[in-house]
């Protein structure tokens, strides 16, 4: 059974039928948003059952669309929180990936701007490394990007998609060693992205992120995870009811190979480790439960089959 990420959009009336159906089919609901009279579910469902969901939700005017970014956490790395970079383009891009199902976090560097003076500290590096992918938003000048990129990528282990003012070919030429993805002609600008060509540029960024994530997914598929992150999410929600009191929009953030649990590490780490998955196998046996550099959250890294010899 292959689970594929999809978004379900439909009316609030009888949406619980669809939710039950997804769960009965063995799928997982990652996020649920209720906006006025509309429900948006971001979920993983078995590929062969998508048609069935479409059919059952048709009388409810439900709509099922592919959204390749569901279940990923993306770091949008902005050079600073000044007016120069915010709200355009940083927020525009962060918002756009969110629409397609990703959970995006904006990571703003303390000393990102400039050429010689640009730098990355250890906290920023660790926070970026906790994500599935980092989208670097750089400026308009080739010279500056070439000069500062080696500093900004030092210690980053996750795939990087680089956006900058020069064209894609130029970016490809000046970055050595190469990063995973490039999107040219998106540097610093001071206007809202609303024209057709600007939206096309955002779509291009999404396409590049999707391409890089697909590659990562393929790599994970070669050595599968001991448990699906979405399944772990359901279990934690069931076994640790305190998570329901967390007011953050996504108290449990699903990643491609892990999970961010937004509960204090010191109090809840042991509880999380002891969550039983199946047949006496606990979460602590098949995953690493570490303190996150983001606030005092917990970050769960699921180990692959080759390390645990178990798949549940």
């Amino acid at each position: 059974m292959t689970l594929v990420p999809v978004t379900y959009k439909g009316g609030i009336y009888q949406h619980d039928i669809v939710m039950d159906l997804i769960e009965d089919l063995g799928g997982y609901i990652v996020q649920k948003h209720i906006l006025a009279q509309e429900v948006v579910l971001q979920c993983f469902v078995p590929r062969e059952d998508i048609e069935l969901i479409r059919e059952i939700s048709r009388p409810l005017f439900g709509e099922v669309t592919d959204s390749p970014l569901v279940g990923t956490e993306i770091a949008v790395v902005s050079m600073s929180l000044e007016i120069h970079h915010l709200p355009h383009p940083s927020c525009d891009i962060a918002e756009y990936v969110r629409r397609l199902g990703a959970k995006s976090n904006m990571v703003s560097l303390a000393r990102g701007p400039g050429k010689r003076i640009a730098g990355l500290n250890d906290e920023e590096r660790d926070v970026i490394n906790e994500h599935d992918i980092a989208v670097y938003l750089l400026g308009n000048f080739e010279t500056c990007i070439e000069y500062k990129m080696p500093t900004l990528r030092r210690g980053i282990e996750v795939p990087i998609v680089l956006c900058g003012g020069p064209s894609t070919d130029v970016l490809r030429k000046i970055i050595d060693p190469p990063v995973d993805g490039y999107v040219g002609n998106v540097g610093r600008f001071m206007r809202r992205t609303k024209e057709a060509d600007e939206l096309a540029k955002l779509d291009e960024i999404i396409a590049e992120i999707t391409r890089v994530l697909e590659k990562k997914r393929d790599a994970i598929a070669k050595d599968p995870l001991s448990v699906a992150p979405a399944r772990l999410m359901g279990l934690i929600r069931e076994k640790i009811p305190e998570i329901l009191d967390v007011t953050s929009p996504t108290p449990l953030t699903v990643q491609m190979a892990g999970l961010r649990v937004k509960l204090p590490y010191d109090t809840f780490a042991e509880k999380v480790r002891k969550v039983e998955i199946e047949d006496g196998i606990t979460l602590g046996e098949i995953a690493e439960v570490n303190p996150s550099r983001m606030r005092d959250y917990i970050i769960v890294k699921i180990l692959p089959f080759s390390e645990t010899n178990t798949v549940v």
Binding site: N140, F141, E142, P166, S167, G187, R188, F189, R191
Partner: peptide, 19 residues
Amino acid sequence: PEALGAEYYKQIANDVLLD
């Protein structure tokens, strides 16, 4: 010296002054 950079900055200057 970078033609594309100049073009972007002309746009930025225009947007900011207009705003």
